[in-house]
């Protein structure tokens, strides 16, 4: 898309705002609609938009696929690891009271934060990985035949 100047300029301005919004949705999910699932999807949309407008090679320079593949597994690991951490502290699996025995509700806050982060990381990774896999496939016909 070398000739679409307006699209490229607008995309450059939007990508940062979309990523910022994704972080807002991620960490403000306790107080307003949102959470890991939505934030992950929005974060992935930022990279997909970048990939569509500037081409896949540029997107893979920003967010290389080896890193994406690591993130896919890392998120599940954070989630499951939170449960293991609470077990090691002598509580039940995924019982967030373990993280602050004096104030169980503060412990809940920490636990929810960690778990939502895990969800967000996995969803971002999976969505970007799926987009890369689809876009990397050689097309059966040329763009002019559309």
């Amino acid at each position: 898309m070398h000739h679409h100047l307006i699209l490229r300029v607008v995309t450059k301005m939007l990508v940062g705002a979309i990523i910022l919004f994704a972080f807002y949705v991620q960490f403000h999910g306790d107080f307003s609609p949102g959470g890991g699932f939505q934030a992950g999807v929005i974060m992935a949309v930022a990279f997909i938009l970048y990939g569509i407008v500037f081409g896949l090679n540029k997107a893979e320079q920003v967010f290389p696929s080896w890193l994406v593949h690591k993130l896919v597994a890392l998120g599940v690991l954070i989630y499951a690891g939170t449960g293991v951490a609470s077990m090691l502290l002598g509580y039940n699996y995924l019982d967030y009271g373990a993280f602050n025995p004096q104030h169980p509700s503060h412990g809940q806050h920490w636990g929810i934060l960690a778990v939502e982060l895990g969800v967000g990381v996995t969803v971002t990774g999976v969505m970007v990985a799926i987009y890369y896999a689809f876009a990397n496939r050689p097309p059966p016909m040329k763009d002019e035949d559309w």
Binding site: G35, G111, I112, V123
Partner: peptide, 30 residues
């Protein structure tokens, strides 16, 4: 839990096992 958004508190705390399973499904599909 002291979280104003009840959906978040059910999603991440009361039904944490469900959500762990859903995350694993997303992971597997990816």
């Amino acid at each position: 839990i002291d979280v104003p958004n009840v959906v978040t508190s059910i999603l991440a705390s009361y039904r944490g096992y469900d959500t762990l399973g859903e995350t694993a499904v997303v992971f597997t599909a990816g």
